[in-house]
């Protein structure tokens, strides 16, 4: 029996790879300016000149999508970075030491998680004023409990391992055990969580921008463009199509990647058992 190909991983890597590549290219170059308006090209149909056509202001949709995707990507990366950093610190400390601090911290995280996070984000952002910086740090903070929980459970699981006991007997200080001995063993779990969080971040940003509180015009943003395209459905249906498709592909690519990685670590798990 041949080895089962991990389709999720394969497909996920391809899709997310292509998307990431396009985004990276988009940071330095787009076919057209994303802000310059061109009345003559208003509602231009998709053609070789304008791959995805033009919107109501004559701006090239493809370029705007590239920039929008790039913005979403950056925001998502920052959000995940904040969540990860906070999560690792809180999760490691609580997972390793346990005790009262652990209980308190976890109940705070539970409380944050209990709120429909999206509504919570909306409220905070609405109060603090919209804009991409606001939503970035708000989302970042809201992601910390999720990461904390994952890191904490991984660390707590490993802290009773014999090699940790060994390290303690050798007089190795706690901080070193936490970060150099235990944490490297949680890498796989954390990676999967990062991918899932990244997905959620993209979706969250797109949703907020769709509602108008995220990235502000004239900056391009996938969510905002989706919202605009709704009104232009009659004149430029391709606008919504391509914008939606981009969001779908972005999320799909990373989701499949995440699934693929999970499958691979499950495989590894059963093999080593």
């Amino acid at each position: 029996m041949k080895k089962k190909t991990n389709f999720y991983l394969l497909l996920g890597s391809i899709i997310s790879g292509i998307m990431t590549l396009l985004i990276l290219v988009g940071f330095v170059w787009t076919p057209y300016s994303t802000t310059k308006m061109n009345a003559s090209a208003k509602y231009a149909r998709p053609s070789l000149a304008h791959l995805f056509g033009c919107d109501n202001l004559g701006r090239d949709i493809f370029s705007r999508i590239l920039e929008g995707a790039g913005t979403s990507f950056l925001i998502a990366v920052t959000v995940v970075a904040i969540g990860l950093a906070g999560g690792i610190i809180i999760g490691s400390l609580t997972g390793y030491f346990g005790g009262i601090a652990d209980e308190i911290m976890m109940r705070i995280c539970d409380a944050i998680t209990a709120f429909p996070s999206f509504l919570l984000a909306l409220v905070i952002v609405a109060v603090a004023g919209g804009g991409k910086f606001t939503i970035t740090w708000v989302l970042g903070i809201l992601f910390i409990p999720g990461f904390s929980r994952i890191v904490r459970s991984s660390v707590a699981k490993l802290r009773d391992m014999n090699y940790v006991k060994n390290a303690k007997l050798k007089g190795i200080p706690d901080w070193r055990i936490m970060f150099l001995h235990i944490l490297p063993n949680t890498f796989h779990v954390i990676l999967e969580t990062v991918i899932i969080a990244f997905n959620n971040a993209i979706l969250a940003e797109a949703s907020m921008s769709y509602l108008g509180i995220g990235v502000q015009p004239p900056e391009a943003s996938l969510g905002r463009m989706l919202s605009e395209s709704q009104k232009l459905l009659q004149n430029a249906p391709f606008y919504m199509l391509f914008t939606g498709l981009t969001i779908v592909l972005l999320i799909l690519g990373y989701s499949l990647l995440g699934e693929g990685l999970q499958h691979r670590s499950n495989e590894r798990g059963t093999r080593n058992a």
Partner: peptide, 28 residues
């Protein structure tokens, strides 16, 4: 020092043997 019963959980799987030994030496 202590030598444990289960050999399979006594060594850190994320690091080489050399690293583990040097950690012990570092704090000796």
């Amino acid at each position: 020092q202590m030598i444990f019963q289960d050999p399979y959980s006594s060594l850190n799987p994320a690091h080489t043997i050399g690293w583990s030994l040097e950690e012990a030496l570092r704090y000796s």
